[in-house]
């Protein structure tokens, strides 16, 4: 049994099909990111796992339980961070973590220490509406963790956070994974998915268009192959094109892309030509597509 099992899930709002036949699984001790542009169906998917709506078709199981039918058995075992969640406007963080701890059968030993963990120690007595957006976000994360969850579902956990806040949230997510928690999160930012996730499920218009580690996605991508490298800005691209047997063009000052098969022998000819010319060869990147390109192609070419 996987921690999260989604089978041919369909979610509709009237005539809008928000999730259209998505199947995926997430395991204990892994971070799975649902990545996709706004409106892709990420929130609709996770809200089905949280029991807010029944699937219109297909099924979902969390820890083997039905999020709607087995609600009372499931809720004590999961931690949830909703997209744009408000709390009581005048509650203090320290009151909020203690309140939510009281609702859980097996809360963390020291709810106040959770505030240290999310960097809110100095703000523990500031009422909710006076916290910054990032602080509210981190409090929401603390509340998701107060019940020692086995599965954590985070909807856009780093949206609206500054660099420091993002680092903090990322390190907490890694700790959760290392403790064997299954973390399912959503993001519309590729960079976040790349930093946080072991595996990524790319959603587009309600469909799952790719699933795997980012390395797997980049390797499986059928887009044009290329080798990227850096060198002197006045490089003779015409001559190099002839040597490599494919077009070479400048992408930016001192950075180039050769649209050729990205194999070891291509890299060898590239390095050999630079050596002959007595030129300095900078960073070479072959075999792996730039993730932005893969992601853009997945999303743009999806039916």
């Amino acid at each position: 049994m996987s921690a999260v099992e989604i089978e041919s899930l369909v979610v509709r709002y009237g005539s809008v099909t928000a999730v259209d036949g998505v199947s995926l699984r997430a395991e204990a001790g892994e971070v799975l990111a649902l990545l996709g542009p706004n409106g892709a169906g990420k929130t609709s998917t996770v809200e089905t796992l949280e029991g807010f709506r029944c699937p219109d078709a297909g099924s979902v199981r969390v820890l083997g339980l039905d999020p709607v039918g087995d609600r009372r058995a499931l809720l004590p075992r999961i931690g949830v961070m909703l997209q744009s969640c408000r709390l009581y406007s005048v509650i203090r963080p320290v009151e909020a973590v203690r309140l939510f701890a009281a609702h859980h059968p097996h809360p963390v030993d020291d709810p106040d220490a959770l505030l240290d963990r999310v960097g809110l120690r100095d703000r523990s007595r500031t009422v909710w509406r006076r916290l910054s957006g990032g602080e509210q976000q981190r409090l929401a994360l603390a509340l998701a963790l107060v019940g020692r969850p086995e599965v954590v579902v985070l909807d856009e956990p780093t949206a609206g956070l500054d660099v420091h806040g993002r680092d903090l949230v990322r390190s907490i997510i890694r700790e959760l994974r290392d403790d064997g928690v299954c973390v399912l999160l959503t993001t519309h930012e590729l960079d976040e998915a790349e930093r946080l996730a072991d595996r990524v499920a790319v959603l587009h218009r309600g469909r799952l268009v790719a699933l795997g580690s980012l390395d797997e996605l980049a390797a499986a991508d059928r887009g044009p192959q290329s080798v990227r490298f850096s060198g002197p800005s006045d490089l003779d691209v015409a001559a190099l094109s002839t040597v490599l047997g494919g077009p070479v063009r400048a992408e930016g000052p001192g950075s180039f892309v050769a649209e050729v098969v990205s194999s070891a022998s291509t890299v060898a000819s590239l390095a050999g030509w630079f050596a002959e010319q007595g030129l300095p060869l900078g960073e070479v990147r072959a075999g792996r597509q730039r993730l932005e390109d893969v992601y853009r192609r997945l999303v743009e070419e999806a039916p």
Binding site: F52, L75, V80, C85
Partner: peptide, 17 residues
């Protein structure tokens, strides 16, 4: 107001029945 602002929604995914 708790319902309007989604506070109840958040409580609804805590074990508070």
């Amino acid at each position: 107001f708790e319902r309007h602002y989604g506070v109840l929604k958040r409580l609804g995914v805590s074990p508070l029945t």
